[in-house]
Every structure is written in structure tokens, then in C-alpha cells.
């Protein structure tokens, strides 16, 4: 079976509030990750972020840290993840984005990594420890292979917001809160003002992540942005249900997508 042509990231934001789901590759196994991605897509997710596990994920809270540990403990490697993505790509055209740290990319070989992204059908990449000042490390190579390097904007970005937004492609990952990933009961950041700042210089779609877990939060955030990103709440379902998480994931993602539609 040949690969399907991946849909463009920009397409998912057209006349639609996007629901973006994150899960860690290899948690609890790569076969299950493949199954979960398809369940999440069937439930209405518009884009899936696939975490390449890293030994020291400094931007992650406990829930995703533990998912990284589980994935690595069963022997998940970058090579095996690329093979899994190829299998997924034979079954779906949903945009797929990697999330990982700069070291696994750098050590794999930047050219080799992004070439493999293109070959397996990865649309974009999020690298939490690669700020604007250092993105030259990967940018040209990523462009050559048609992979968007997603820009992160944080509550502390302030006077940097417009510099960052101007060069953003794919979508902008607006970090809702200070700290690491994880479920939060309340998001206090003035997202509206940040989004207005971004909008002055960029038309790139804005998706908000960090701390979002329930349909009411998602609904409120979707009103002012182009989409919501949910990670820890999904990884938590996987950690609780393990191999049997597909149905729970489907129901959860369906409820979230309905809330923002």
C-alpha cells in the first residue's frame, strides 16, 4: 500500500476550529500508538502531535514525563517511530506533527532526520528547547524537506511576540500558561491580548495549548483562537487504560471536538 498524500496544516483551520491531540510514541507500544492515532482521527481530531520520547523532557509535567519513560523502557527509538508513522500514513491523510527535543534530532543527524520526516509523511515539528535565536540549527534543512518548524509563543514572550510571529509557518503554538505541560483548573494568561498582538503581524493560524483538559475550557479558548491543543489529558487516559485506551480516547476526543465546533 502506498502512502497517502498528507493534507496541508493550513487546511485544517479553514472554516473550522481545529482540535489538536498529542500522544507519546511508544506509550505503551508503537502498535498501540498507531491504533490510538487512528481512533483519535476517527473521533474528529484535525491534527495529531506525536511525541518522540526523550530521556530528559524539561518542558513536560509529570504526566508526559512518565509517558516518555514508559515509551523508552519498551525500547522505542526514532527509527522505529519513523516506521510506525509510515504505517499510519498508509491509512490516513491527517496532518502529523512531531514534538521532540533538539538533542534526539541533532544526534540522529539533522539532514537524515528531516529527510525521514518527508519520506514518512510528517508535516511539521515542535521543538520546545529550540528558541527563535537557535532555530538556524534546523530551519533550512526542515524547509528543504517541506517540514514546518512550529513557533511557540509564551506568556513571557511580551516584546518578542511580533518578531516570533512574523516568521511563523504551519500554525503558532500559543503556550497558555507558565510552567510545564499538565492539566490546569484555570488559565489566567490574557490570551486575547497576545492573540491581538500576533494578528497585527501574522495570518498564521493560532492554536492554544498547555493546561487544557475539559470541554468548557476548550470551548472558551476556541472562541478567541483557531484551535486547541490537548496533551496531558490524553496521555493520562492512555496511562490509565493502557492497551485498551482506544474507546476512551475516541469518546474523549469526540466530546472535545464537539465542544469547540
Amino acid at each position: 500500500m502506498s502512502n497517502l498524500q498528507a493534507n496541508k496544516i493550513s487546511k485544517i483551520f479553514k472554516d473550522n476550529k481545529a482540535f489538536i491531540a498529542f500522544l507519546t510514541a511508544g506509550d505503551p507500544s508503537l502498535d498501540k500508538t498507531e491504533e490510538f492515532i487512528l481512533a483519535i482521527e476517527k473521533a474528529g481530531a484535525d491534527l495529531v502531535e506525536i511525541g518522540i520520547p526523550f530521556s530528559d523532557p524539561i518542558a513536560e509535567g509529570l504526566v508526559i514525563q512518565e509517558a516518555n519513560e514508559r515509551a523508552l523502557s519498551v525500547g522505542t527509538t526514532t527509527d522505529k517511530i519513523f516506521m510506525m508513522v509510515k504505517r499510519v500514513r498508509q491509512k490516513t491523510a491527517i496532518p502529523l506533527v512531531f514534538l521532540t527535543y533538539i538533542n534526539p534530532i541533532f544526534v540522529y543527524g539533522i539532514d537524515r532526520f528531516f529527510k525521514a520526516c518527508q519520506e514518512s509523511g510528517i508535516n511539521g515539528i515542535i521543538i520546545p528547547d529550540l528558541p527563535f535565536e537557535e532555530k538556524g540549527e534546523v530551519l533550512d534543512v526542515a524547509k528543504t524537506y517541506g517540514v514546518d518548524v512550529i513557533t511557540l509563543i509564551a506568556p513571557t514572550s511580551k516584546d518578542r511576540i511580533q518578531t516570533l510571529a512574523k516568521e511563523a509557518t504551519g500554525f503558532i503554538y500559543l503556550v497558555s500558561s507558565m510552567g510545564v505541560t499538565g492539566v490546569r483548573s484555570e488559565i489566567k494568561t490574557d490570551l486575547k491580548t497576545m492573540i491581538d498582538d500576533i494578528r497585527q503581524v501574522s495570518e498564521t493560524p493560532i492554536a492554544v495549548g498547555f493546561g487544557i483538559s475539559d470541554p468548557d475550557q476548550a470551548k472558551a479558548i476556541a472562541k478567541i483562537s483557531d484551535g486547541v491543543i490537548v496533551g496531558s489529558a490524553i496521555v493520562k487516559i492512555i496511562s490509565e487504560h493502557g492497551d485498551n485506551a482506544s474507546d476512551s480516547l475516541y469518546n474523549y476526543v469526540k466530546s472535545m471536538k464537539e465542544a469547540i465546533s
Binding site: 528547547d129 528558541p131 537557535e134 538556524g136 513571557t156 518578542r160 503556550v175
Partner: peptide, 22 residues
């Protein structure tokens, strides 16, 4: 522009959240 280089080493590879503090 990458700063604080010692040959190929050094730089500022940290999350955006910390960039303004740095």
C-alpha cells in the same frame, strides 16, 4: 543569532518561556 559560542559549543537552547529572563 546564536550567542555565547565557544567554537561550535555553547548557545541558548531553552524554552521560549525562559528567553526573556535569559
Amino acid at each position: 543569532m546564536s550567542k555565547g559560542k565557544y567554537g561550535v559549543h555553547g548557545g541558548q537552547y531553552i524554552p521560549e518561556t525562559l528567553m526573556n529572563a535569559i
